[in-house]
């Protein structure tokens, strides 16, 4: 039950994009089409879950016992970069259609701060191994949810008459602000 609550809390209440500002770049960059938003969300969720497993292992089994905490940032970033590369190769080998669908989104994930943020938060909050996995799963689900909602709104927005200076990034940010307001309604759902 607690794990489920952790999942819900990471996905909706403390949504990575709308309340913790992690992964804003892909949120603004890739949210103009529904299909690409969905692919990006899936790819990110996939990498997030693997990252939470691997970073937990590295942090609690390698770095902390050896008093190497100061190596945290370089270690995590290198692990994430190679992990993304590995995942890309794996998907390419296993399933060509998925690989083609995810295509350019996979390398982009390396510089998504939501991934590194997830790894850092897991080490900061001292989650257990299972908690870490559920936290990663929730974070990925929340990221996908925000991205999909945003893409849906932006597809409608194409037809709207937006003042010229506000086209592109500014209106996206304002819409995101309104979305964040809506998501605030979930606060207090779990005390």
């Amino acid at each position: 039950m607690e794990l489920f609550l952790l999942f819900i809390s990471a996905a909706i209440i403390n949504n990575f994009v709308l309340s913790m500002f992690l992964g804003i770049c892909p949120f603004i960059g890739v949210s103009n089409k529904f299909s690409s938003a969905l692919s990006m969300g899936m790819a990110t969720t996939f990498v997030m879950v693997i990252t939470s497993v691997v970073s937990w292992l590295i942090w609690f089994l390698v770095l902390v016992p050896n008093n190497l905490e100061f190596l945290q940032i370089p270690a995590f970033i290198l692990v994430i970069a190679s992990l993304v590369q590995f995942v890309e190769m794996f998907i390419k080998k296993v399933s060509q259609p998925i690989y083609r669908a995810l295509g350019i989104f996979l390398p982009l994930i390396t510089t998504n701060c939501a991934i590194l943020g997830l790894a850092l938060l897991i080490s900061m909050k001292d989650y257990s191994f299972l908690e870490g996995i559920f936290f990663g799963l929730g974070a990925g689900a929340g990221f996908t949810l925000a991205l999909i909602i945003m893409a849906g709104i932006r597809e409608e927005l194409e037809l709207a008459d937006v003042p010229k200076p506000f086209r592109g990034a500014p209106i996206t940010l304002i819409v995101a602000g309104l979305l964040a307001l809506a998501f605030m309604g979930f606060a207090g759902m779990i005390s």
Partner: peptide, 9 residues
Amino acid sequence: PAGAFLTLG
């Protein structure tokens, strides 16, 4: 958080 998005937008 909503204020941050609105201000920057």
